[in-house]
């Protein structure tokens, strides 16, 4: 599963996910993409599940690009622990996703196959997603 190699601080505050994506909101590397329509944390486990679902379906055809990275440590207190005694250890790593973020991209396959592969990824995501193509070039 993906996680940062080096970090500056071991723990982070939870923060809020406000607004829409202003970066990473268009298909940049592949031909087709999967775009998030909601704001959510996507865990490293979910990102990996999506990758596996797509690669199993594609059977070594085409290429899958993962456009999000889980760089936010999320901590969780163990069960049956009293409150206090400091912030708990990191439980999982998550990517902060806003509406409009392109989560995955696929290159080198036909549109129908890309649609099916991205639909399989969408099932693994905790957000509503949609299929997108490249923007008009001027």
């Amino acid at each position: 599963m993906k996680m940062p190699k080096r970090i500056k601080f071991r723990k982070q505050q939870r923060g809020t996910l406000k607004g829409r994506a202003t970066r990473g909101n268009y298909v940049a590397f592949g031909d087709y993409g999967l775009q998030s329509l909601e704001a959510h944390w996507i865990s490293a486990r979910q990102i990996e599940a999506g990758r596996i679902a797509a690669q199993h379906f594609l059977r070594r055809q085409g290429k899958v690009f993962i456009r999000i990275f889980p760089d936010k440590p999320v901590s969780k207190k163990p069960l049956e622990t009293r409150m206090g005694k400091g912030k708990a250890d990191t439980n999982f790593w998550a990517a902060c996703v806003k509406p409009g973020t392109v989560l995955y991209e696929i290159a080198g396959v036909q549109e129908t196959i890309a649609k099916q592969a991205l639909a399989r990824i969408a099932h693994k995501m905790p957000v509503r997603c949609r299929f997108v193509g490249r923007r008009l070039a001027v």
């Binding site: 829409r20 202003t22 909101n25 268009y26 775009q35 509406p99 409009g100 997108v132 008009l136 001027v138």
Partner: peptide
């Protein structure tokens, strides 16, 4: 046509 501005989901000009 020099530039296009897109909506936040990137599909509408």
């Amino acid at each position: 046509v020099k530039d296009l501005q897109f909506g936040y989901l990137g599909d509408t000009v």
